[in-house]
Design a protein around this nucleic acid. Structure first.
Lengths: 351, 351
DNA sequence: GGTAGGTTCTGGATCGATTCAGTTGCTGGA
DNA sequence: TCCAGCAACTGAATCGATCCAGAACCTACC
């Protein structure tokens, strides 16, 4: 066993307080004694104060947690999530804080205990499925947190975009191009729905908050353009991944009246759709596809999409956590979005 | 303040042990009493046992640390690092463990304290600059660790590839294509060297272990092909990023005798080189460029490179940490690499 | 009825540090 | 000479749990 602070104190012949001070408060003892303590500690193989014990006594940990829904390893498959994480990491570094990545199991009680057991000073919540349940658990612990998803309470710290308006602008782009038969592609659209084509006329019940907001934004645009919901197809992908996106649109072309465009809720889904619907990648009037996020791959693929600032989102979130503003209004940061038009969208073919 | 376990015990009128058991060892008390305890706890707003206190007493934390050199946010800019992390995350999840990302400051003492202060049960060391110093600090804490870099001790847990042989195969590919004047591109090649062209005849002093091994592998190939070191140019990038790679090769074309090929130590550097040397992306006999890692972007860019299994590397590393093999030999895992030839490399132009 | 065995719960020690209100000893000024 | 003031150090309480040996009680079997 490694020696403890107590052992060092006894070896040197001073009190434990003094050894503790030698590490944490150099001004509280004479330089000579400090040197002597540090030297004996080294000789004894004392690795310095135990981080866990120190955290317990001090009352803070020196790490913030980042919560991801679904499996943690999935988090890294979405480049946008990685960008968010980069921003969080950047801010955490500046505050000499570590980052604890907490994977949330799919079941509610598992998620709850994961949040309860994380040794952190606060949380950045990235897109949690059971948003409210998670946030309540965090509130229960009395820890500060920042949420990125929609529908924050007035007193919550929040950073995000106007999901609905942004989604609307993407859909409006397509209706302006003449598209009337459109497929909407999201993941986690309906909890128990089988993957594949699926017609719905109500988006209020979509469990995934972000997907719900974006679908609502799409709906706004189509309503404004006079397109009936019944002309739209809602596709649900099993995951927010490229292959799931591809799988979800596979059956589209064989429909009696195939849609002329696909509005995806994320770039990875959109890229998957492109893989299937435009395997050659050539621009032109074939099926139009739009995404959401503007990840790096989107540009190379010529994907029309909604750009949102990923790193800034993460950075702002962590910064809010570290330096909570006194003014409640400053605790909610709305970031801008832009419609980026590229070659994956074009005029609808004449019918 | 949130109530503690003690407060709950007093409220219910039982001992602290019993409340503790209600959470951690349900079989140690009657279901009825357990229910009563849990219920009162809920009413009082007790969030469950404090993770820090629990860790202290139990002697383990439930998280493993991943150590990155240079700034943590850089870690995410390298897709290969992200893949490694994905693998680690996957294994960590399976063992119900969280992931603590620990950014290591550039200075030795900062790095040391970062390692000393991390509350974890073990470390995965991803490509640390001052490898030995870091590992010694970890050994000082008596924590288990897995290293991925070269030169492990015989009793260290290790997972990696044969860096030198892999690098050699990339270089041999180029010499076989007739290239004789070649630029080698790595980051962190010489600590205080200015970025830009730079001729060296000795790679043993390169500080970054991976870069050193790969350069050595390149050297092997050129020696075998009868190419003099003096015909090679060593370029050093300021970072392992695409832009740094681009910047490093910027001056190449204007050299009196420009190299016909660039051998990069990583894909991101190679892609940066391609951005400058082949901005149009067309294949052909122009400057050949090869990379290392085979990240996703490499395929799209047609980059010839060495493929190494990123997720598997991370997964194996974490698995070694969680289930250390009894047999010391099984603690060192050598993963395979492959040369993947694409359009970025071609025959050297006739001189 | 006595005792062996089992369940259910308790008390106190312990994990490894930090904190803060002192105590001690020394210097310097009136 | 006396005391204020300061620097250097100490002791005990504390952070919030878990662990383990044992106490109390009940059951059951010979």
């Amino acid at each position: 066993m490694k020696p403890t602070l107590r052992a060092v104190a006894e070896a040197v012949g001073v009190s434990r307080s003094t050894v503790s001070n030698a590490y944490g408060r150099p001004d509280q003892l004479s330089p000579q004694l400090r040197q002597r303590i540090l030297e004996t500690a080294r000789q004894m193989g004392y690795p310095g104060p135990d981080p866990t014990a120190r955290s317990l006594r001090r009352g803070f940990v020196g790490a913030i947690g980042v919560l991801f829904t679904s499996r943690l390893s999935y988090a890294f498959t979405d480049p946008f999530a990685v960008r968010f994480l980069t921003g969080v990491a950047e801010a955490a570094e500046r505050h000499d804080s570590n980052l604890l990545l907490v994977p949330l199991p799919d079941d509610a009680v598992g998620a709850r205990t994961a949040v309860e057991n994380a040794a952190v000073d606060g949380f950045c919540v990235y897109c949690a499925g059971d948003e409210e349940g998670i946030l309540d658990t965090i509130r229960g612990r009395g820890l500060p947190f920042v949420t990125t998803s929609s529908r924050p309470r007035a007193d919550d710290l929040w950073v995000g975009i106007d999901e609905r308006a942004a989604a609307r602008s993407a859909a409006t782009h397509l209706t302006a191009l003449g598209h009337r038969r459109v497929a909407l592609l999201g993941h986690d659209v309906l909890p128990d729905a089988p993957a594949g084509p699926l017609r719905v006329d109500d988006v209020a019940d979509v469990p995934h908050p972000t997907t719900r907001d974006r679908l609502a934004g799409f709906a706004d645009a189509f309503a404004a353009a006079g397109v009936a919901w019944s002309d739209l197809t809602v596709l649900t992908a099993t995951d927010n991944t490229r292959v799931a996106g591809a799988a979800a649109v596979r059956s589209l072309p064989s429909l009696p009246e195939p849609p002329t465009a696909v509005l995806a809720c994320s770039d990875v889904l959109a890229l998957g759709a492109l893989d299937v619907l435009r395997p050659d990648g050539e621009p032109g009037p074939r099926v139009s596809v739009t995404g959401f996020d503007d990840i790096a791959e989107a540009e190379a693929a010529g994907l029309t999409t909604i750009r949102q600032p990923g790193e800034a989102k993460g950075r702002s979130a962590a910064t809010l956590l570290f330096d909570p503003p006194v003014d409640a209004a400053a605790g909610q940061i709305l970031l801008p979005t832009t419609l980026v038009v590229r070659s994956s969208s074009g005029p609808a073919p004449r019918s």
